[in-house]
Design a binder for these strands. Structure first.
Lengths: 248, 248
DNA sequence: CGTATCATTGAATTAAATCAAGTCCAGTGG
DNA sequence: CCACTGGACTTGATTTAATTCAATGATACG
């Protein structure tokens, strides 16, 4: 029981330096919908992106702001969420490097339908929608690959709907931990550490529950030896048992 | 109270005749992502589609079947749903004419992630994914318009997530009735009639609740004079009051 | 150290699910 | 045309998962 509760995060405090033009080419090539581009084509596309650094907690954009950019994460994590009128936050997703977000409304103008917050310090590339439209027109393969990514996002959202309507809070939280460990987990002395700064409230807002309920579930998991957890961090000790929680 | 409970549906029993090649061109031109095509281009695209009729309750495809087609509704309504292991059905959407569904996985192969059932008799156009890929490569404008549609679907799914996590069953049902009346409603003696065959179970599966709860909410709405309802049909009498239910 | 923020835990409450009869209607077949 | 029947719908009583309310405990950070 006397488990370590101090944070095991090494808090990299990503500097602006890391968010440089050099990184851009390297990372953009890893984005799924640019993978088909040849190097010279990619170089031309990269020029249209600009890089920005955001610190933990920074708002990247706010829901209902006019949407002008498509963004790609080079480093760090971004939380997409909707603030509701009733004051509850709904976390739609937490994105890892290589993911895109922002707007794809290339025809006419639009507003963002969700807010984006830097979950950790991060480096983000942005491209104006007009420029991006030109890219799509020039390289149809990018459009097609992007359609796939877009379908995949829809699929993930529908999975979320399914879980919300059919599964208990405990199972939803187990699923979220599994998903996040896949995206952000790092192997560490026999377990998978989530380096994300990640509070009970974040977890609750992802699972569609309350911080108290999330806390109770996490306590149970910890007592059962499935996870180790403390303030803003989680380490999964027994991933198989966590998987078995989602079933049954 | 002695309200009519007999069905006001005129049960059109859409015949196969109606699902003809003539209709195809006319209707495909109305699909959002083909709207930019000129008539000769559209004609060429139309040729690649084939038309099929489905009767109410027919399964159009089943989740996890290999996905080979993209489909467009010409007439009728299609229910997209996921059957869960626990035996609960989750209705993701009910689509109206002009909507597309099926798969957009143009690279590599894939399986359907949801099932599709004809909610009413309907006429569906299908195009093989290889053919559709060629269309996209030839007409980049279609890709771009399709990306918009795809984003819109994601937005709708995220809205569903938001509602499931923050709103009561009563509000979710009110919202569903409003959405459906927008898609399928027909003006009829001072109210909006939903011609859809649409059971309490369908409603419950859309709202993520039980038939009993859905029935209770519908009874309340009826007692309050907001709707008229019977077996498989709903007429919205006081849309303003229904809207006010979703707020507050 | 002190303090703000995050996390936990317990008790009371509640929305909705479940369990259990019923009723009502549309279509059937005599 | 009417009685019959099965599926759709309703309603009530009970149970339960999760929220809400209310303290208290722990930890990172200045």
């Amino acid at each position: 029981m006397g488990s370590r509760k101090t944070t095991p995060l090494n808090n990299p405090t990503l500097e602006n330096l890391h968010c440089s033009i050099e990184l851009k080419t390297e990372k953009l090539g890893m984005v799924p919908f640019f993978q088909d581009l040849k190097q010279p084509e990619l170089d031309k596309v990269v020029e249209k992106f600009s890089a920005n650094h955001f610190s933990e907690g920074d708002e990247i954009y706010y829901q209902e702001d006019p949407a002008h950019y498509l963004r790609v994460i080079v480093e760090g994590a971004v939380k997409l969420l909707r603030y509701t009128d009733e004051g509850k936050d709904v976390v739609l997703d937490i994105l890892n490097p290589g993911s895109y977000f922002g707007s794809l409304k290339l025809l006419g103008s639009d507003v963002y339908t969700e807010s984006a917050v830097a979950q950790s310090g991060c480096c983000i590339l942005s491209i104006g929608l007009k420029d991006f439209k030109e890219v799509l027109q020039e390289y149809p393969a990018v459009s097609i690959a992007l359609l796939e990514s877009s379908s995949e996002k829809l699929r993930a959202s529908q999975e979320q709907v399914k879980q919300l309507t059919t599964q208990s809070v405990e199972k939803r939280i187990a699923n979220i931990l599994l998903t996040l460990s896949g995206k952000f987990g790092e192997e560490k002395d026999g377990g998978t550490l989530l380096q994300l700064p990640f509070s009970r409230k974040d977890l609750a807002d992802m699972a569609g529950t309350t911080t108290e309920s999330a806390s109770r579930v996490m306590s149970t998991f910890q007592k059962e030896g499935i996870i180790e957890t403390g303030r803003q961090w989680v380490a999964i000790q027994d991933i198989e048992r966590l998987r078995s929680v989602t079933k049954s």
